[in-house]
Design a protein around this nucleic acid. Structure first.
Lengths: 119, 119
DNA sequence: ATTTCATATCGCCATATGGCGATATAGCAA
DNA sequence: TTGCTATATCGCCATATGGCGATATGAAAT
């Protein structure tokens, strides 16, 4: 049998499960957090580097990182005085890649229909 | 070459792109919206059916559906007096499946380490 | 036209969240 | 010790969001 596409009939999810899922997606629902994750996808970085690269305040970056850590998406390794952050769950890359692909498809579709509408 | 796993080096995303992505994930970041999507995964349903099945108020369901429609995740087909809703983008199923699988793995991992901790 | 049903929208309130400046903490240096 | 650096946390404010009751809209039935 095929391994692609959920063949399962979409079970009813419990309230608790919905809460968990929502919390995970919520972690991905803020541009600044996505920026931090995007930076970490390029390479591990210290909090300070993220502060500088993100252009956000230190307090905010710290709060966002705490939330991402709480969600299991980011890990931290102490290294001397600094804390090095990294993507702790590959699902982050997968979800973002998937979303980006989808958006690109949509934009291309829109562009095509716009172009043909000019004909 | 393999088609699995993003081989791309995680490009830097623009602010606009981050906003778009965040908006999509935000649509999935509320338990009630996830419930509606979960219901629609079982079958198309009218707004009224969703109101009843979700246990939420009609106004709220309507607002949530508007947001999901705006995000391109839900579609609506008028049928006489009623509006029939359906999942408009298969990415919804994929993202939710992926997240559910991941959470299940984590829970099982936690359970195992708890169990071994009792030894 | 009037009524009725299904849905959308509005106004309000309570809570949650992000950004900011200030402060606290913790590890290393002198 | 004292001080310096990197990060976390706190308090505050402004905004965003979800739920609720009431109302508006719009299509079908009478």
């Amino acid at each position: 049998m095929s391994k692609k596409k959920s063949a399962a009939p979409a079970k009813q999810l419990s309230d608790a499960a919905l809460e968990l899922i929502a919390t995970r997606f919520r972690a991905l629902s803020e541009p600044m957090r996505l920026r931090l994750l995007n930076l970490l996808m390029q390479s591990e970085q210290t909090v300070g580097q993220l502060v500088e690269a993100s252009g956000s305040g230190q307090a905010n970056v710290s709060k966002h990182l705490a939330l991402l850590r709480e969600a299991g998406m980011v890990g931290v390794r102490k290294e001397g005085l600094t804390s090095v952050c990294f993507i702790a769950d590959p699902i982050v890359n997968e979800l973002c890649d998937m979303m980006c692909c989808r958006l690109r498809e949509e934009m291309e579709g829109k562009a095509r229909s716009l172009a043909s509408g000019l004909g």
